[in-house]
């Protein structure tokens, strides 16, 4: 009995330590803010360690940005997220390619690391990700998504850029190149990328999933408020929605006020 409790203490110590490692790998908020001053990250891990991760990298006039959601949560998800951050850093070590090329390469890295060859059991491991590249010279936003979309607003009107229905990792069908979507700066006021944790959260009156529809509605509603309040509003709204329910998954949501950025560049 005493032995078991000893083991539990050891395990939680290990997990806390793992959390430290994960935090160390995630970009510091200050660094993020320095590159993208008009932005916020709502990052609510379900456990001590998280399967969601975010990533940012600046190379000359291009800024790469991603919000990813790895298979599973907790420790397995965290391992995968560490891999993801590492691979993205490796891919962008010299220059930042097009958003779809980044995802194509990331998929190759994951497939190679997990030794995936397209067999059925391979298909459970991987990640979904929304990847953007802000090109301040061309004044455009590139977006490619592996199952995760991008939402943007222009004059308070919401638009969705769909993701490809392919994960990062081996999928049921043979790999294709991810699509590259290009949106000029002046067509966007604000945009959001996120993992599925927010929309999958149970709560509300019928204790149901918020779903994407509910999530999009919240996003629409907060457009009435200044961008600086969005993080707090979104946090409060999910807390209210959750009520006494347990958080079902890691939550990650990144918002960027492009209008302010492109007015300054």
């Amino acid at each position: 009995m005493e032995n078991n409790s000893h083991n539990a203490v050891d395990l939680s110590d290990s997990i806390r330590y793992a959390s430290k490692i994960q935090s160390a790998l995630l970009p510091e908020r200050e660094y993020f803010k320095k590159i993208l001053p008009y932005s916020f990250i709502l990052y609510l891990p379900k456990d001590v360690v998280s399967g969601d991760f975010y990533w940012i990298k600046k190379r000359e006039n291009r800024i790469g940005l991603a919000a990813a959601d790895c298979t599973g949560h907790g420790v397995p998800g965290a391992f995968m997220s560490i891999m993801g951050i590492n691979f993205l850093n490796q891919i962008s070590s010299v220059c930042l390619g097009l958003s779809n090329i980044i995802l194509n390469q990331l998929r190759e890295y994951v497939m190679k690391a997990l030794n995936q060859k397209g067999e059925n059991e391979d298909q459970k491991d991987g990640m979904d990700i929304a990847c953007c590249v802000i090109d301040t010279e061309k004044r455009q936003l590139e977006f490619s998504g592996a199952n995760n979309p991008l939402i943007y607003f222009k004059d308070k009107e919401m638009k969705i850029v769909k993701a490809d229905r392919m994960p990062i990792g081996v999928g049921p069908v043979e790999e294709e190149s991810f699509r590259k979507n290009i949106i000029p700066f002046d067509a966007i006021d604000k945009f959001y990328i996120f993992s599925d944790g927010y929309a999958d959260q149970f709560g509300g009156e019928g204790n149901k999933k918020l779903k994407l529809k509910g999530f999009y509605q919240i996003l629409n509603e907060i457009q009435e408020y200044p961008f600086e309040q969005h993080e707090e509003l979104l946090h409060n709204r999910i807390k209210t929605w959750m009520g006494d329910n347990e958080q079902v998954d890691d939550i990650l949501l990144i918002g960027i006020d492009m209008k302010k950025i492109y007015n300054e560049t």
Partner: peptide, 18 residues
């Protein structure tokens, strides 16, 4: 060839190539 096309049209194999 892009890596994807190389795998698809030349190698004919699903494998990660970095």
């Amino acid at each position: 060839f892009s890596t994807i096309d190389f795998k698809k049209h030349v190698l004919n194999k699903r494998v990660g190539i970095t």
